[in-house]
């Protein structure tokens, strides 16, 4: 039973989602945009800062994959943290269902 620290920021959450497959820096930017249907836009400065922080938290690591270009990958800790955040967010959505979800057809 591990309790994580403060909840993740939106940006961090999406970056981790994007890194379900290893990606290089710019790839992350693109993937985040696609995953959120263009809603979450991330500039290179912001993304770079988040990647640095995720590395420090040991959620992701850098790997020299195809020689020159470096690729980011999620660690096991990162996966756990992402899952925990996902559960937390769905719980929050669930808790609000009684008010907004009038028998709609939502998937889990």
């Amino acid at each position: 039973m591990e309790t994580q620290g403060p909840p993740m920021s939106e940006a961090m959450y999406y970056v981790l989602l994007a890194l379900s497959n290893p990606l290089h820096g710019y790839g992350v930017m693109d993937k985040v945009k696609k995953l959120s249907n263009g809603r979450v836009k991330m500039g290179p400065g912001t993304l770079y800062g988040i990647l640095k922080r995720l590395q420090q938290q040991n959620f992701i690591f850098l790997e020299d994959a195809d020689g020159r270009r470096k690729v980011y990958q999620m660690t096991v800790t990162g996966e756990e943290a992402l899952k925990e955040e996902y559960l937390r967010l769905s719980k929050m959505v669930n808790d609000g269902k009684f008010l907004f979800d009038m028998g709609g057809s939502h998937e889990e």
Partner: peptide, 14 residues
């Protein structure tokens, strides 16, 4: 193109 900084808190750190 995207601005370099899209997150104000991140930018503040810089």
């Amino acid at each position: 193109i995207e601005e370099i900084h899209t997150d104000p808190v991140e930018h503040a750190d810089r």
